[in-house]
Amino acid sequence: MYKVQKEIEITPTSVILNGQPIATTETGDKMLVELYRRYAGDYPKFFKMDTLCRLGFIAAEIVLREPDCQQPTAVIMANRSASIKNDTDYLATISEGNYYPSPALFVYTLPNIVTGEIAIRHHLQGETSFYILESPKQLEQLVNCQLSIVNYPLPTVLAGWCECSKPDEFYVKMRIIYGTTD
């Protein structure tokens, strides 16, 4: 048996934690900074991250701070458009006639970096995986499949649909799902 222990959903205009809305004054990318200052504040590397990583980082930060939240044994995330927003930003640094490729942007041209950022922040040395899928439903199937074949030790998965394809346009839904013998 598997249960959803915690759940957070963030859109450019709303934050919902375990079904309860959290009030914010900002919207879009600025709201992510507002949430960072409120829930983390001590991790300046946040400002080096691309939006996809900021989004995943903040969602994980809020959900993993919840009381009696279980430490994840795996971080499994997915989206539909990979790292396209940051790919576009990197492309701007290699435009013809203005060719200065930015290593700090290039490193974020892989979507799985967000799982790495979360692993570093929360010292998670379990699995990190990133998939490109059609829909959040497909991620759910993959996570259920993975949970169904492991009997011991029972896994706790931080699973998230984390999408950002344009500035100020993003969506994350992150859940802690854990195995139980009930």
Binding site: N112, T128, S129, F130, L133, S135, L142, C145, Q146
Partner: peptide, 22 residues
């Protein structure tokens, strides 16, 4: 629905692990 594994340079091994689980 196909699955794309985007786990940086480990993707080719990660994808085989995903196949094994499915």
């Amino acid at each position: 629905q196909p699955i794309v594994v985007s786990n940086a340079c480990t993707s080719g091994v990660s994808a085989q692990i995903t196949a094994m689980r499915l």
